[in-house]
């Protein structure tokens, strides 16, 4: 339990520092959320998905731990 919590903080820190693996891991974690929000009336909007991916990258960068 404890290790899970600190694990995320570490992951985030690494991702903020440019660690590709950490970034990919976070992406894997949040991909379902991005896909769900990229749906437009049961159709997948590719462009919107790209925008939201950019939003995720931006959030990783700006989030204050």
């Amino acid at each position: 339990m404890d290790s899970d919590r600190t694990k995320f903080e570490a992951l985030l820190l690494h991702a903020k520092n440019g660690d590709k693996n950490a970034q990919e891991e976070i992406f894997r974690m949040y991909r379902p959320l991005l896909i769900k929000n990229a749906m437009d009336k049961n159709l997948f909007d590719e462009d919107l998905y790209q925008e939201l991916s950019a939003t995720l990258i931006s959030c990783i960068r700006t989030f204050q731990i």
């Binding site: 991005l34 929000n37 990229a38 925008e51 939201l52 939003t55 931006s58 959030c59």
Partner: peptide, 11 residues
């Protein structure tokens, strides 16, 4: 929560 707010906004 931070991410969800940003995503919904962007959408």
């Amino acid at each position: 929560a931070y991410l969800v707010a940003a995503v919904v906004h962007r959408r």
